[in-house]
């Protein structure tokens, strides 16, 4: 090697290269907070460069809300305006729960594109890569919520719990969305292709969101289905959110959502981190 370097005329290019390579120092590894913020910045930059990815939190919610209000409003509740009071909180829960799925898809893409490996060879607190993008996702979900609630208002939604109730409801949704995201990160780490990931994600999502009390009152359902609907975390959330928006929520309903969220995070976040560290 040395022989080779000597033989070679050291061109300007090589000197310039050698210089800039030598000029680097080795800073202390970043703190967990600092790397989390860096990953959050990355997610924001991605939104800037690929604004289409905001469709899921802007266009979808609008379509969902209009579709379900006018499709079911007349049929189920007799009047769209009346149904909207019942439907909007639920459809908000459903929409945000569904778009949490993209967290898994983004992670899966990172793995298949190799950038995940690069992050894993860095001396950083590894979960910050996930936490950073989850933070930005929370912003995205807030946007979806804001858009749906504004549109709902225009269509005649009148929350009896006032704006405080609405804000509390949105906060509950965000907490729950954060905890639900860990399921998608697990799937994103396990599934080999985006196609299979989408398929499995929908298989989890559809029963969870539709077999719930989002669209109908569970008392109209057969017994066996009723018991599933009652323990379904989406129903638990929808009940609390509906209650908060209309000023009828009980402490118990709210606590239940928080407990479910904490339990889900406590189970699924460590599994995610384990898989993340030991990914083959």
């Amino acid at each position: 090697m040395t022989e080779f370097v000597e033989q070679r005329e050291k061109g300007e290019n090589e000197l310039r290269l050698a210089e800039s390579i030598a000029s680097s120092k080795r800073p202390k590894p970043p703190s967990g907070i600092s790397s989390t913020l860096t990953f959050a910045t990355r997610a924001l930059l991605r939104i800037k460069h690929v604004p289409e990815q905001m469709f899921d939190v802007t266009v979808f919610p609008v379509i969902f809300l209009l579709m379900f209000t006018y499709l079911f409003g007349g049929a189920i509740a007799g009047s769209t305006e009346e149904y909207l009071q019942f439907l909007l909180p639920g459809i908000l829960v459903m929409t945000v729960s569904q778009i949490t799925m993209y967290t898994g898809i983004d992670l899966n893409n990172d793995i298949r594109k190799g950038i995940f490996d690069r992050f894993r060879t860095l001396p950083i607190w590894l979960p910050s890569a996930l936490v950073g993008s989850l933070l930005v996702d929370i912003v995205r979900y807030s946007m979806a919520a804001a858009i749906m609630i504004s549109l709902g208002f225009a269509l005649g939604f009148r929350p009896e719990g006032g704006w405080l109730g609405v804000l509390g409801a949105v906060a509950l949704i965000l907490v729950f969305a954060f905890s639900l995201s860990w399921i998608w990160t697990i799937l994103g780490l396990i599934m080999r292709s985006e196609k299979s990931l989408m398929m499995v994600s929908f298989m989890v999502l559809f029963p969870l969101t539709f077999v719930s009390n989002v669209f109908v009152d569970p008392r109209t359902l057969p017994n066996w289905l009723q018991s599933f609907v009652e323990i379904n975390p989406i129903s638990i959330l929808a009940t609390a959110v509906r209650g908060a928006m209309h000023g009828t929520a009980t402490v118990q309903q709210v606590m239940l959502v928080l407990v479910v969220s904490v339990v889900m995070t406590a189970i699924f976040a460590p599994i995610t981190i384990y898989l993340y560290r030991n990914k083959k």
Partner: peptide, 21 residues
């Protein structure tokens, strides 16, 4: 290649540098 393809070259390198501390 293992960078964020949607980000610019500069943004990628700044991100890496920040992750190095």
């Amino acid at each position: 290649a293992s960078l964020d393809e949607d980000l610019t070259g500069m943004e990628n390198l700044v991100m890496m540098a920040k992750l190095m501390g």
